[in-house]
Design a protein around this nucleic acid. Structure first.
Lengths: 197, 197
DNA sequence: GACATTTCTGAATGAACGGTCAACAATAAG
DNA sequence: CTTATTGTTGACCGTTCATTCAGAAATGTC
């Protein structure tokens, strides 16, 4: 019986780079510059590997973009899931979720799902499907947190789902507003108003 | 005394195209495809005029983009202003404002300000300034409508401004969500929740 | 060591990119 | 009619685009 821990090593020269690490770099580049704003030359430069290696590993540019978006989605799932399982009051976790768009780091790149929605969702079915799935996952995570918050309440699940989409819409809106350089106080007021609903 | 109604006809061959009409076409193209997604060849094709005429009239590609964004902004001001002066209950006008992202036409192109924010605001100062100014104008229009709605109330102006930015954030968020193909019922629920705040 | 398989490297591809040029056409002023 | 000025046209510029090719290099299998 072979050791299944190690990935099955197929014959041939082995990859000289970490596939996930390079995918992370690709993700950040597309995230920052969008699909058309990123060239394959940019990708090879930041990945530090040759063009052919990129194509062999991930396919053409569109595939790279979709892979990057998928990876972001996975990360978002992980983050939301971890935040959900964290200790402390649920409302604090929801507060943190709506604070993310206000923090400085987010103001530069924003949210990849939001960017992809504005940039590509209207023109590419695969992108649109990925973005929708990503938002749906975040909505589900929010529902979970809302249910924990209202544990003693009788709020129906459907109401929580609706609230989750409202919070998610404010989240996306804050991402957009944040990128315009809107002052922090206004952003925080929007966040707090959404939390007190 | 010369007739000032007619624009001063300078010497030289006159323009063979309507400058505003062509600017509208340019606007729709950048609106639909973003900055990097639109080529100068695309612009000349839909404008129906030669490259040199475009460059003479509007400057280089970046200038065309900014002019297009400025024009959208002017249009948004006009629309918001007209909606503000319209008859009928103020809350109906606010309702209509938040319904715009849900309508089919908006789902395809979205809101140019929102798209530009996600696409270019982080990388171009001039774009960011224009987008911010556009949103600020819409916020002011909303404040006006909110003040009319709460005419008998004692709500302070600062509160209206804060509410306006909240509505604007939901507006932007709905634009993002709408483009992912989120079902209409959910979008309407988000809208109605934001209106009952 | 020979072979099949896979990756890596660097050059090359044709197309598309943003931008410019020079010749020509149309107007106003003298 | 001549001249100055501006707009139009189509060819043209060098660069960058995404993608591919040929060949060398590195591995597992026999």
């Amino acid at each position: 019986m072979t050791n299944q821990r190690e990935p099955i090593r197929s014959a041939g020269r082995p990859r000289a780079f970490d596939e996930d690490e390079v995918l992370d770099r690709i993700m950040h580049l597309f995230w920052d510059r969008g699909y058309h704003g990123t060239s394959v030359a940019d990708l090879t430069a930041t990945a530090g590997i040759g063009k052919q290696s990129l194509y062999k590993a991930y396919g053409d540019k569109r595939s790279m973009y979709l892979r990057a978006l998928e990876r972001y989605e996975t990360r978002a799932i992980d983050t939301a899931s971890a935040a959900l399982r964290a200790d402390g009051p649920p409302q604090d976790r929801i507060h943190a979720f709506l604070s993310a768009p206000i923090e400085g780091a987010s103001a530069t790149r924003g949210c990849f799902l939001c960017n992809a929605s504005a940039d590509q969702a209207a023109h590419d079915d695969a992108t649109r499907a990925l973005v929708r799935r990503g938002f749906a996952t975040m909505a589900n995570a929010l529902v979970h947190a809302l249910a924990q918050r209202d544990i003693d309440d009788v709020t129906p699940d459907a109401e929580h789902l609706s609230q989750a989409w409202s919070l998610l819409s404010v989240y996306a809106g804050l991402q957009i507003m944040s990128r315009t350089g809107l002052d922090r106080a206004t952003l925080e007021a929007v966040r707090d108003a959404a939390l007190n609903t």
